[in-house]
């Protein structure tokens, strides 16, 4: 199947006055921001602040109650082919009888026809994705035999096998060992030259080292888009989640360190 054409001059992700609630519980309120093609966005914020909801809106898994989400100017559902996703708990079923290769092949479904077998280029693409994350030798291993870190790399390979233009990761380092973590982030840095990356994380050190733009999410979204790491941004990054969790009074915190509610196209 043909790859979806994208216009990289348009914002990779754009939220236009988006609100979302589960029943009557507001999760995101009047959120507007946009990030450009090639950005590396880190999303931080307190638990329950709406980070995962934000990702799911990008993926079209959830629809906004108000406002509009656009991926390169189009509806997320139509752009799924260019979106690669690593869910927060990607393996709720760790004893599932399936091999590493089969899992990565699942990323090829959007490229293959329904009801047809995977073709040779699907297999090649899956194997390439596996060697990219350093898991080529585990091709035939059952997924249940892998460590948490190895498993996470397989899920990254599955997301890469979709050949995404935007990679969305929801706390990918939760519960994995330190070497796997740094390997994952080095890889993301490398991948960033080819794709836009959106990373939900609690790991503030990672933010300071790898990320180009930071978004603090707590019902609203505050974007820090300094091109390089500044002391102010580090402060903001460290303070943001900590203070939010500690006080639960977002605006006091935000006032202190000068958040800008940013809209890139307003510039």
């Amino acid at each position: 199947m043909k790859k979806a054409e994208i216009d990289t001059r348009l914002p990779a992700i754009k939220f236009d006055h988006v609100s979302f609630s589960y029943d009557s519980h507001a999760v995101l309120e009047d959120v507007s921001f946009s990030i450009n093609h090639g950005d590396f966005l880190g999303i931080i914020g307190p638990n329950g602040g709406g980070k995962t909801t934000l990702l799911k809106l990008c993926l079209g898994l959830l629809r906004p109650k108000k406002g509009k989400v656009e991926i390169y100017g189009k509806e997320p559902v139509k752009m799924r082919k260019i979106l690669g996703y690593i869910p927060q708990n990607p393996n709720p079923n760790p004893n599932f009888p399936v091999s590493v290769l089969d899992v990565v092949l699942m990323g090829r479904i959007s490229h293959s026809k329904p009801g047809k077998r995977f073709r040779r280029d699907d297999y090649e693409s899956a194997k390439e994705a596996l060697s990219r994350v350093g898991m080529a030798e585990f091709l035939d291993s059952p997924i249940e035999k892998l460590s948490g870190g190895q498993r996470q790399r397989v899920f990254l390979a599955r997301a890469l096998a979709t050949e995404p233009k935007i990679l969305l990761l929801d706390e990918p380092t939760t519960g994995i060992d330190a070497p796997s973590q740094s390997m994952l982030f080095e890889l993301l840095k490398e991948l960033n030259s080819q794709m836009t990356i959106v990373l939900v994380t609690h790991d503030t050190i990672v933010i300071s080292r790898y990320i180009k733009t930071v978004a603090c999410v707590n019902q609203r979204v505050f974007l820090h888009e300094e091109g390089k790491i500044t002391q102010q941004m580090l402060d903001a990054t460290y303070q943001c989640p900590v203070d939010l969790i500690a006080h639960g009074v977002p605006h006091r915190v935000f006032d202190e360190h000068n958040h800008v509610k940013k809209n890139k196209e307003d510039k």
């Binding site: 898994l61 990607p90 709720p92 079923n93 599932f96 479904i109 979709t162």
Partner: peptide, 22 residues
């Protein structure tokens, strides 16, 4: 037999299966 790969993907990870458009 026809939709084995689709059934496998959905059984393994429903949410991901949605994101690849199933």
């Amino acid at each position: 037999g026809t939709y084995y790969k689709e059934f496998l993907a959905i059984s393994f990870d429903t949410e991901f299966a949605m994101t690849v458009g199933l």
